[in-house]
Simulated scan of single mutants.
Amino acid sequence: MGELETRRGAAPTARQSLFLVFCIGNERYALQATDVVEVLPRLPLKPIARAPSWVAGVFAWRGTVVPVIDLCALTFGQGAEPRTSTRLVLVRYQGDAQQAGQVLGLILEQATDTVRCDPADFKPYGLDNRQAPYLGPVREDAHGLLQWVRVNDLLDESVRALLFPATPLDLDDLGATP
């Protein structure tokens, strides 16, 4: 059989996407690479007074103040381990369709690997977890289950208002208390 006949008889290739894989404890999660702006080493952050404990702080990036959340602390209540594989991953965040997208920092453990797969391989896992709407469908592979984290569902309205106020954050004002 010639190459042309082989191509015609082959199944169409699935739509593949790249995902950044990371861990929370022993569990694997993934962010779609199109959501990722940049992957940085863990950097010092300026804390935000009276913010939820999982809001790690802010830092200046390319002239912009970027809020950072610790995804381990948000999900399971314990901060990310300070490992050499713990990264500060900047993502495009648009929690409200009426607002322009923002850059949000995520502290992620073991964020050193990627996987390429068809997004349709991720399937609902049967639970309606309203406390963690960002935890999306799962995909099974040779390493177990991989859960898709949906960036735009990470923050509820009150935290979104704290981290992305109508007036942009100013580094000099963040430590002030009323």
Rank of each mutant, 00 (worst) to 15 (best):
G2D: 15
G2K: 10
L4C: 00
E5K: 10
E5C: 03
R8N: 02
A11D: 01
A14H: 07
R15A: 15
S17K: 15
L18S: 15
F19I: 10
L20A: 11
L20Q: 13
L20M: 12
V21I: 15
V21P: 08
V21M: 08
C23W: 04
C23H: 13
I24S: 02
G25Q: 06
G25D: 05
G25P: 03
E27T: 12
R28A: 11
A30F: 12
A30E: 05
A30S: 13
Q32K: 14
T34E: 12
V36Y: 03
V37Q: 12
L40R: 15
P41Q: 14
R42K: 09
R42P: 01
L43S: 06
K46Y: 00
P47W: 00
I48C: 06
A51T: 05
P52S: 01
A56I: 08
V58K: 04
F59P: 02
F59R: 12
R62N: 12
R62G: 05
G63H: 06
T64M: 05
V65H: 02
V65P: 00
V65T: 13
P67Q: 07
P67N: 06
D70I: 08
D70L: 08
C72V: 03
A73L: 08
L74K: 15
T75P: 10
Q78H: 15
G79C: 10
A80F: 10
A80L: 08
A80P: 05
E81A: 11
E81L: 13
P82L: 14
T86A: 13
T86Y: 09
T86H: 09
L88D: 01
L88N: 03
V91F: 09
V91E: 09
V91K: 07
G95R: 07
A97E: 15
A100R: 12
A100P: 04
L104T: 10
I107V: 15
E109S: 13
Q110H: 11
D113R: 11
D113H: 10
V115Y: 12
V115E: 14
P119I: 12
A120I: 07
Y125G: 04
Y125D: 03
N129Y: 01
N129H: 03
R130T: 10
Q131K: 15
Q131H: 11
P133M: 06
Y134Q: 02
Y134A: 01
L135M: 13
G136C: 10
G136Q: 09
P137G: 06
D141Y: 09
H143I: 01
H143E: 11
G144K: 00
L145S: 03
Q147D: 02
R150L: 13
R150M: 14
V151C: 04
N152C: 04
N152M: 01
D153I: 00
D153N: 05
D156I: 00
E157C: 04
E157N: 08
S158T: 14
S158A: 15
R160S: 03
L162G: 07
L162A: 08
F164G: 09
T167K: 14
T167W: 04
L171T: 04
L171M: 15
D172G: 03
D173S: 11
L174N: 02
G175C: 00
A176E: 08
T177V: 14
P178F: 10
